[in-house]
Design a protein around this nucleic acid. Structure first.
Lengths: 340, 340
DNA sequence: TATAGTAAAGAAACCGGTTTCGATTCTGTT
DNA sequence: AACAGAATCGAAACCGGTTTCTTTACTATA
């Protein structure tokens, strides 16, 4: 038989209510009985049933984690997974556990909202590089506290965290500029992605800010943020005529694919073309040449997401957003000498 | 107000019990009322409270996921995370969701068993490259169905999946042998790790099986399975005298670290020393030279783990283990020509 | 000593489901 | 028409907690 509150009450010779009060720090219980009961709880290792507690209080201490968007983003995604890791740690410290919703087909059109109700989650975090689907929109607009990671949630009980994408792009352009590169290209994603669009817009703005001209021929797009798209995009760039001197890829995986394509064509990095990625995933350190990239502070993104969600759950904030400053990580893929 | 079974019952003009019976496929309910109620459920999008259901049935449709061991293994681990991904997908298809236990300090000595009871999980999966801790042992011996990934669980309601580590090693040795390498080294981990020990034992056995001699000077160990340990282990190997002609690293990350050390010393791969890793993580494709490695069928490991756990939960099996066959992935790090 | 006020504890309703068991209605048979 | 048996449905107890409200015991004050 499972240990329950009634058994604890009997062992201590008190009522069930008294035990409950002790576990929830009510004040109307004498110090003496409190100690006695706590000792029994300690000895027996009693832990109250989460279901019963949730049923009674409508609070579950559970945070729902949603990988939104069509496939693609899951535990194997090198960027999100690090944010998630930090988020999980921080949420654990705050006393919450994480529950992951399966988004398999058999779910009625990925109805995240009703799953949140089903599990009585206190809040949830939505991870996605893609534009909003309607199921997410519904959740965003609901009364369930939500935090988006790289996803702009606007609901009254929602917020989001992301890196400063404009600044990402401008740091890249500045780096290129100072090294003497003037003919700049871009590899983005056509996936319905706010992130890609923001980075591209910022990139264009920064180029113009430095008084350079934007050549749209050097702007190509893969269908997502993964390696094969980068390969394929660079193939097109190579095929389409004279190359830019430097290219910014909106993700490291895109850059990795681009490297593969360049190598196949016997082009040297950075002598023939310089390259900067984005995300600073592990693999950047192992390529030849090693990949200059933008480091997003994933740990901080996770911690911020956790704290924002906590505040939202406890009505201590009104939502909003946090933007985290990126950092340029200089490695070998842009060379070091001034270019003509 | 939250939609609940009573409201559905009222709307349909039937009793609560009838609604419950319909949702649980009882037979003593007429087709007519069944259709009427189902229609209302459909329209309203009603989804029964998991807490209430769990409280009443003691089944939660939740699977606990535990990252065991001291830190180190978490969402960012390139191997486990892929197994987990496949596991999650399969478990989703089987109708379960995943809950991740925080293993933060504030938990009384990581008492996984009581957390399982707390959440009424139907079963759990334990992921770890390290030897058993007592908290895991307790869970293993309990009546809660458990599956270990790379962790030998022996309890009556437990099972495990792992790759055939002996075969991993023997495939590597065979590869070395056929390419003409005779002087073989090994980089393992001193972490209390069954995996490292199994691979090392299998490696030695295979070397002897080919009639070669084992030189223990060429067997070095890092303190874990990560890149810095590989770097540091290779440093020691280089410092300690004449090098072997080929080295098997018990993980790709160890191999990556070894590559870094070799490059720093101006040693060429594979001309001066050949290298094989293990796991086939993404990064293998991006190193120079690309890394020959052993591919573990992570997807299959995840699927097997899911099905074993499902059977265990439904009393359709007695536990046991599944061993998955590994495959050699030949890339550039061993060269291709026969060595003298 | 009587009384008011406070501290401590418990009874009971409630959360939203499940499940047993008894009641009622519907068949078909003689 | 009477009745057995099956089909259908609902009442109520239960799961393990929380919380309100009442009761009881104790303390302090006049």
């Amino acid at each position: 038989m499972q240990l329950n509150i009634k058994m604890i009450a009997e062992m201590a010779g008190v009522s069930v209510s008294t035990v409950s009060k002790i576990m929830n720090n009510y004040s109307d219980v004498s110090e003496k009985t409190k100690q006695r009961v706590l000792e029994i709880i300690e000895q027996t290792g009693y832990s109250p049933s989460n279901s019963a507690k949730t049923l009674a209080t409508k609070k579950s201490s559970l945070i729902g984690v949603i990988f939104a968007g069509e496939l693609n983003v899951d535990f194997t995604h090198p960027f999100f997974v690090e944010v998630l890791n930090s988020f999980k740690k921080q949420m654990g410290v705050l006393g919450y556990d994480l529950i992951f919703f399966s988004n398999e087909k058999f779910l009625s059109s990925g109805d995240y909202f009703s799953r949140c109700l089903h599990f009585h989650v206190d809040g949830c975090v939505i991870i996605s590089g893609q534009k909003m689907e309607s199921a997410i929109r519904e959740l965003d607009m609901s009364s369930i506290p939500c935090i988006g990671v790289d996803l702009e949630l606007k609901g009254k009980k929602s917020g989001y965290v992301m890196s400063d994408n404009y600044q990402i792009s401008s740091k890249v352009v500045e780096h290129f500029y100072l090294l003497g590169y003037r003919e700049l290209g871009f590899i983005g994603s056509t996936a319905d992605s706010d992130i890609s669009n923001l980075r591209e817009a910022g990139y264009i703005k920064a180029i113009e800010g430095f008084g350079l001209t934007v050549n749209e021929q050097w702007f190509v797009h893969g269908e997502d943020f993964f390696e094969p798209s980068g390969y394929e995009a660079m193939q097109r760039l190579i095929a389409s005529g004279p190359l830019p001197k430097a290219v910014f890829a909106a993700s490291d995986l895109l850059a990795l694919g681009a490297i593969r394509a360049l190598k196949e064509h016997g082009l040297r990095i950075p002598e023939d073309i310089a390259l900067v990625g984005c995300d600073d995933i592990e693999a950047c350190k192992y390529t030849t040449p090693t990949l200059t990239t933008i480091r997003q502070n994933k740990e901080r993104l996770g911690v911020l997401a956790a704290h924002m969600l906590f505040d939202l759950i406890n009505n201590q904030s009104e939502g909003g957003s946090f933007v985290v400053e990126p950092a340029l990580v200089v490695r070998e893929s842009c060379g070091s000498r001034k270019h003509p």
